[in-house]
Amino acid sequence: MNEAWPFLIQLVVFAFCIGVLGLLVGGSKERRHFRELAEREKRLSHIRVCNLKRVTAPDEVEDAHMMLGSVVIATDYFKSFATGLRNLVGGEMRSAVSLMNRARREALLRLLEQAEARGASEVWNVRFGYSNISQMRGRSGGAMQVEMLAYGTAVRRRG
C-alpha cells in the first residue's frame, strides 16, 4: 500500500503535465487557426454568401452546382475537462463556443474555396449540418469531437 502511493502521485502529476501541455499547445494552435480563418475569409469576401432559398434574378445566373465543405474538429482533453466543470455552475461554455465557431467557419471556407475554384460569384441557400462524433467512439466523455458540414448552391452571375 505504502509503495503504491508515490506511483499514484507520479501518475497524477504526469496526467496533469500532459493536460497543461495540451492546453498550451492546443491554445496556440487554436489562435493560429483563428488568424488563418480571418485571412482566408478576407481573401474570399468577394463571393456573396446567402441562405435564401430563392435566387434573385435567376435568369442572370448560370452553372448552378452544389458545393460541400466539411471538417471534423476536436478540443483538447483539458478543455473537455473544463467544460465538465462548467456543467456544475452553468453559464456560457467558452471552449465549446470556440470549437463550434472554428468548425463552422472552416467548413464554410472549404465550401467557398471550392466555389471559387469553379469560378462562382455567389453561393445561395447555405445550410449547416452538425453531428457529434464523440458518440462515434462508442462512449460519452473524453474530448468533444464535432463534424460540421456546410453546403450550398454556387452560381455565376453573367455580366
Binding site: G22, V71, V72, A74, T75
Partner: peptide, 17 residues
C-alpha cells in the same frame, strides 16, 4: 492522441467526406 492538443482530425474528415 490528437485529442491531447485538439484541432482538426483529418482522418475523420476524409472518412466522412
Amino acid at each position: 492522441f490528437k485529442n491531447l492538443v485538439g484541432g482538426e482530425l483529418r482522418g475523420y474528415t476524409e472518412l466522412l467526406t
